[in-house]
């Protein structure tokens, strides 16, 4: 135990005892991202959304999630990429942060990863990159690079609240 602690204490955020974390991995364009599985409520297919007046461009619109009016964020646009062209494989990840439920529109979910936290490293400090604001960590798994999206910062009003 003490070993793990010293290891994780050097640069990563200190976490309780070298635990395994699970992530939902997904694609946007050619890049791979993931979110902590604990903040994911469900994953559902794409459904057309009702545009929201005066909303920032990255807010795709509202969909009906079993009676809840759910705002959808086009994660590609939020990260500064071109808008997602919805296809049959497009997926909405329903996430929960600070009691607010919202959907993240992504190009497709690839798998669920179980990662030892030692595999997580802080993102390289590239200023001027929009995506940097929403990425808390990066990880390298079997030669793939995945960026961990911090869902807390995806919704603008949450970013203000937090």
């Amino acid at each position: 135990m003490p070993d793990t602690l010293t290891q994780s204490a050097d640069q990563n955020e200190p976490r309780a005892g070298g635990a395994l974390q699970e992530f939902v991995a997904f694609r946007i364009g050619a890049q791979e991202f993931c979110v902590d599985i604990m903040s994911v409520r469900e994953i559902r297919g794409f459904s057309p959304a009702t545009p929201i007046p005066h909303a920032p461009s990255f807010v795709h619109g509202f969909i009906n999630l079993r009676g809840t009016v759910l705002p959808i964020v086009d994660l590609a646009q939020r990260l500064g990429f071109a808008p997602i062209e919805p296809t049959e494989r497009s997926v909405t990840i329903v996430a929960l942060a600070h009691g607010v439920v919202f959907g993240l529109l992504v190009d497709g979910v690839s798998d669920i990863l179980t990662v030892d936290e030692s595999a997580l490293q802080p993102p390289p400090d590239i200023t001027g990159e929009v995506a940097r604001r929403f990425i808390s960590e990066v990880m390298s798994i079997d030669g793939r690079m995945l960026s961990v999206i911090d869902v807390d910062h995806v919704m603008p009003q949450l970013a203000g609240a937090a």
Binding site: I52, N64, Q157
Partner: peptide, 27 residues
């Protein structure tokens, strides 16, 4: 009537939303 403020926030000129017969959200 469904609230749009719980999960999103205030929208100027919009008081809420509802779900129509086709399952879509209408403001």
């Amino acid at each position: 009537i469904k609230s749009t403020e719980t999960n999103y926030g205030m929208i100027p000129g919009v008081g809420g939303a509802t779900i129509l017969g086709d399952g879509r959200v209408a403001l």
